[in-house]
Design a protein around this nucleic acid. Structure first.
Length: 581
RNA sequence: GCUCCGGUGGUGUAGUCCGGUCAAGCAUGUCGGCCUUUCGAGCCGUAGAUCCCGGGUUCAAAUCCCGGCCGGAGCACCA
């Protein structure tokens, strides 16, 4: 009991703090929380403490705010108020790592399309976790459907290309169409342990039985009969669609989707040749079979994939139990979308086929190719993935978030240039002498050097391009400033061009007059620029000649316009892809 | 319909497992200011959340329990 005084003091201290924080009235609950935070052992005595806290709170609340502040100043608080807030986003620990000697992850795409943002979670998380724990990252092409979701040769390469761009190098590479004999071997094994049977039932009839939780006639066939039937699948006795190998499951499983799922089916590869192995095989594994086997065979410890695969895990576990295997740790995440970005493989493929999109890198598509061409950096994608993390919920990220991340990375390294779109000629009268303007390539980074713009007047007239988009702004002021150059006045818009006269040169005057700053390009020294906007349109204009000296692939900032990536240069035309504002 | 899984400011997320320093943190966006020869960056500040709803347990619930609502996923001889 001799501690009582001390505890009361503690309560008083937090009550005062809370009261001062909330305008004179403290909340006993919050005070209690703070006290427990400092003295957790008091929790067992919570009931009694509540009474004391309530009493003290009442006392404190009857005081004026001034008195509370004065009393509060007598107490000292530890370090807890000052803690560094900004911490770098890192991945949370991967579950169950201690179960395995070495972490092994995999990314297993079907090479039937290019990769898009929807795969970013699987790729980056799988790769980065493998690296984080000094493990192994496997790339496995799942090209086992020669008919419906048929693989196509160029995509094998483009997927690898995207992976490299994302800085996700893989340690091992497999292609499932090379592994058919392995799958056949395990099919026989599963038949032998009575974990699988060859079913020749017609689809609808089987489904009906399935819903009623009843076995089909094929289910009770002997091992011998099943092996014979399996041979008939392989040798062509059974035609396409006439037989499948099924994995036995619990027919009473509450989810009809997991009951006796199909493992291998027959595809007429004469009519539907596989892009890599042609018509060599006619029995092809289904996803759960080949992926399930491979995950174990390749020693995968952590499967990171979309939540649409959740029931697949349940299905595959039956196969694992027949084989005496332990299922890897599976983590399922939700869909990652980007507002307005096209993320569906079929829409991408169809849109391109119809000419709706210019290609796999059309800026309206959320493919890695498109993102890359727009100057979105792999670091930005990675940061987004770290940010959304592994959650089974869908996330729609906004372009503005992506922009701001990208901008933070790009801003310090992007040289600045002027480029005028929607141009109109501005004739500056009474400008006799030739001049050279020297500007910094980056306002805060001296080491990036300088750019110079030569001004060559003709008959005392200097012609520059300005953007029609700025006309409204200019009209509102008596004086406007061409950035880095001169303050102009007496603006006069003619039919095809505009006129103005030099008012002064110094920035101080411009500031004093509150003149708007306009970017510009001299007519006598410029390059033609074309830029693809995010909605796929092409806009044209003129840019500083220095733009043509920046390497292809680099990102520049067009002042007052935004960031853009230099896509190509030819015939004195610089082609840009707009990146972010 | 059946089977899973979720629901925290506009958006994304932290916290939820193990109830209490959370009258809810961070980022981005909004708005305002400072700075700046960009409408960019940076700095400072502001507003914005019934923690899906209802009930229960408890001294105490974003957190645990029950019910509901809403959303997503799966239910292919696709992956």
């Amino acid at each position: 009991m001799f501690q009582e005084k001390e505890i009361e003091e503690l309560i008083r201290k937090y009550a005062l703090e809370n009261a001062v924080k909330f305008g004179g009235k403290c909340n006993p609950q919050a005070v209690l929380g703070k006290v427990f935070g400092e003295r957790p052992e008091l929790k067992s005595n919570a009931r009694n403490l509540v009474k004391i806290v309530n009493e003290i709170s009442e006392q404190i609340n009857s005081l004026s705010l001034e008195d509370q502040k004065n009393l509060l100043s007598q107490y000292s608080f530890g370090e807890r108020h000052a803690q560094p807030k900004k911490e770098e986003k890192i991945l949370p620990p991967l579950p169950e790592v201690e179960k395995y000697g070495k972490v092994v992850t995999r990314f297993a795409p079907n090479p039937d399309c290019v990769l898009h943002l929807g795969s970013a979670r699987a790729i980056i998380l799988s790769h980065d976790y493998a690296r984080m724990y000094g493990g192994k990252f496997i790339l496995r092409f799942e090209d086992t459907d020669p008919r419906l979701k048929k693989a196509s040769l160029p995509f094998y390469e483009s997927i690898k290309d995207d992976l490299r761009w994302l800085k996700c190098e893989w340690d091992e590479e497999y292609i499932q169409s090379d592994r058919l004999p392995i799958y056949y071997e395990y099919a026989r094994k599963l038949i032998e342990v009575e974990g699988a049977y060859v079913c020749t039932c017609e689809g609808e009839a089987f489904k009906k039985l399935l819903v009623e939780k009843r076995p089909c006639p094929c289910r009770s066939l002997s091992v011998k009969e099943n092996l014979e039937r399996f041979d008939k699948m392989l040798d062509g006795t059974f035609g396409e669609g006439r037989a499948v190998l099924r994995i036995k499951t619990d027919l009473n499983h509450p989810n009809p989707a997991v009951r006796d799922w199909p493992a291998l089916r027959i595809v007429d590869t004469r009519r539907h040749p596989h892009p890599r192995v042609g018509s060599k095989y006619r029995v092809w594994p289904l996803y759960n079979f080949s992926a399930g086997l491979d995950d174990h065979l390749m020693g995968v410890t952590h499967i990171i994939r979309g939540k649409e695969h959740y029931t697949n895990m349940v299905r595959q576990k039956y196969m694992y139990s027949y084989l005496g295997w332990v299922y890897p740790t599976a983590i399922h995440y939700g869909r990652l979308k980007i507002e307005g970005g096209v993320l569906s493989k079929s829409k991408i493929m169809q849109g391109i086929a119809k000419g709706l999109y210019s290609g796999f890198d059309d800026p309206r598509l959320a493919t890695f190719k498109a993102l890359r061409r727009r100057g979105i950096l792999p670091e930005t994608i990675r940061q987004i993935i770290y940010e959304v993390n592994i959650k089974p919920v869908d996330a729609t990220i906004s372009w503005t978030t992506l922009y701001s991340i990208n901008k933070k990375i790009v801003d310090p390294i992007a040289p600045r240039y002027f480029a005028v779109f929607n141009p109109i000629v501005l004739a500056i009268r009474g400008f006799g002498e030739e001049r050279k303007i020297v500007l910094r390539k980056h306002p805060n980074v001296d080491s990036m050097g300088y750019r110079s713009i030569s001004l060559i007047p003709e008959n005392s007239v200097l012609k520059v391009y300005i953007s029609k988009n700025d006309l409204e702004l200019i009209k509102k002021f008596n004086v406007f400033r061409l950035m880095g150059f001169a303050n102009l006045t007496e603006f006069n818009l003619k039919f095809t061009y505009a006129e103005a006269r030099v008012h002064s040169f110094d920035i101080e005057t411009a500031k004093k007059l509150d003149a708007p700053l306009i970017h510009w390009v001299p007519v006598t020294e410029c390059v033609k620029v074309q830029m693809i906007t995010p909605n796929g349109e092409l806009i044209e204009g003129f840019g500083e000649k220095g733009l043509a000296e920046e390497p292809v692939g680099s990102i520049v900032q067009l002042e007052r316009e935004g960031f853009a990536r230099i896509d190509s240069k030819q015939d004195n035309i610089v082609k840009l892809y707009f990146s972010t504002r």
